[in-house]
Structure formats: structure tokens, C-alpha cells
């Protein structure tokens, strides 16, 4: 019984599946040939829409809204780009060589050529996506991994100040345990031997460190694009980027 949530692993997986955000589309279609400005405008337009949906999504993860507001803010600020990137990989998993940013923005690596420094990130995204393809990532595993990224992102925060903070941090750890149980339960349904299940769990979790590395690269790249005035960032995206760059500096 899911460590205080009152949910079985199966029920928790179903809740997380139901929390999945809807598909998004470009607000304004992008014409070819792509330019640095047009592509960055499209990518940030999509990211901005997805961030709003990500907040709704997080609120539907069982137990998340019971955390202190400051922990909720902090968790999302730490992991938003990891979550956007994992979502991109999931959409692209059945399309080798392509990155499906949205149904109306499907790019191959060469199309990243027009944006300085983005091809290196595209290559890493494609490589991690093909690893997920090799592993035949299942939808249930994907949603558990995404929730784990959210709950595991708090490692850079300051020490808790109040009893409420201490309690909230404890809740995050218990939630993380519940989602881990849910992922273990999902893997257990694959019919693999117990040893193979452990190896699959390790393979999936090891990819999270690649995603963190990728998102750090992405934050660095977006900051450069902002500094060079290649793209005007919308309010929420700007705020999320600033939260990252001010923490790391």
C-alpha cells in the first residue's frame, strides 16, 4: 500500500498515466528554409506551452500538492528541461533519426545546422532516444521515469529551515519510494527473470543521468541564445531559465 499514499503500485501507475499532458502544436507554422531565429522561436514557443501543461501535470502526481509550495516551485525549477527532453525522446522513440518536437515540427539532425551549437545537443538527444528504442521503453515505464525526475530533482536545494520544510522533504522521499515501487511493479509485468528485471531497472535509471547532462547542455545553449538576442523568451520560460542560471552561478 504505496507508503502513505493509500495507493497500490498499479493504482499509482494509473494515476500517473492519467496525468499525462495533451499533445501540443506550434502556435504559428514555421516555413522552410529554417533560420536560427525561426527555429529558436518555434522551439521556445513549444517549450513555453509545454511548461504550462507541465505544471498541471505535476499537480496531478499523487502527493505533489501536499508538499510545501516552495518545494513544488523548487522541484519544477530544477527539472523542467529534463522533463521536456524526456517527453521529446518518448515522442521520437518510434522515429529513428528524427526529433518529434510536435506533430508539426519533426526535425532531423541536419536541420539543426542552422542554429549554432544545437546539433551537438540534437545528436545527444538522438543517441539517448535510440537507447530507449533498444530497451523498448514502455509507456508505463516512461511516465514513472518522468515522475521520478520531478521528485529526484531537489538535490541542489538549501537545508530545510522550518519544521514544515523538514516534513515536506520527508514527503518527497516517500513519494519517490512509491514511484520507484510503481516502476519496479511495471517492470515485473514484463515476464523477465528477477535478475533481468534488476538489470532493466538499472538500465532505465542510468539514462536519467544522461538526461540531466543533456538538460545542463540545453540550459547553457538557451542562455547563450538569450544573451545573443537570437530569440525573445516568453515570461514563464524566461523565469524557469533564470531560476537555473542563477542557481548555478
Amino acid at each position: 500500500e504505496g507508503r502513505g499514499l493509500g495507493l497500490s503500485p498499479e493504482q499509482l501507475v494509473n494515476c500517473i498515466l492519467e496525468a499525462e499532458p495533451p499533445q501540443i502544436y506550434l502556435r504559428e507554422p514555421i516555413n522552410k528554409p529554417y533560420t536560427e531565429a525561426s527555429m529558436m522561436t518555434s522551439l521556445t514557443n513549444l517549450a513555453d506551452q509545454e511548461l504550462v501543461l507541465m505544471i498541471s501535470w505535476a499537480k496531478k502526481i499523487p502527493g505533489f500538492v501536499e508538499l510545501t509550495l516552495s518545494d513544488q516551485v523548487h522541484l519544477l525549477e530544477c527539472c523542467w528541461l529534463d522533463i521536456l527532453m524526456l517527453g521529446l525522446m518518448w515522442r521520437s522513440v518510434d522515429h529513428p533519426g528524427k526529433l518529434i518536437f510536435s506533430p508539426d515540427l519533426r526535425l532531423n539532425r541536419e536541420e539543426g545546422n542552422c542554429v549554432e551549437g544545437i546539433m551537438e545537443i540534437f545528436d545527444m538527444l538522438l543517441a539517448t532516444t535510440s537507447r530507449f528504442r533498444e530497451l523498448k521503453l514502455q509507456r508505463e515505464e516512461y511516465v514513472c521515469l518522468k515522475a521520478m525526475i520531478l521528485l529526484n530533482s531537489n538535490n541542489c536545494s538549501s537545508l530545510p529551515q522550518t519544521p514544515e520544510d523538514v516534513e515536506s522533504r520527508g514527503k518527497v522521499l516517500r513519494l519517490l519510494d512509491s514511484v520507484t515501487d510503481a516502476l519496479v511493479w511495471t517492470i515485473s509485468r514484463t515476464g523477465l527473470s528477477s535478475q533481468q528485471q534488476s538489470i532493466r531497472l538499472a538500465h532505465l535509471l542510468m539514462l536519467l543521468s544522461h538526461i540531466r547532462h543533456l538538460s545542463n547542455k540545453g540550459i547553457e545553449h538557451l542562455s547563450t541564445m538569450k544573451r545573443k538576442n537570437v530569440v525573445l523568451l516568453y515570461d514563464l520560460l524566461l523565469e524557469m531559465l533564470d531560476a537555473n542560471t542563477s542557481q548555478s552561478s
Partner: peptide, 24 residues
Amino acid sequence: TSLKEKHKILHRLLQNSSSPVDLA
């Protein structure tokens, strides 16, 4: 919670009980 935190859009979207999509 600091005043700066309270002015965050993220803070506001999290606090609002209705769907953030409506707010956006």
C-alpha cells in the same frame, strides 16, 4: 516564502486551484 518567490508566475500557477491552462 520570500516576496520574490510570491511574484513568480510558476508560484501563481501552482497556487491556483483551477487549471493553469485557463490562466495562460
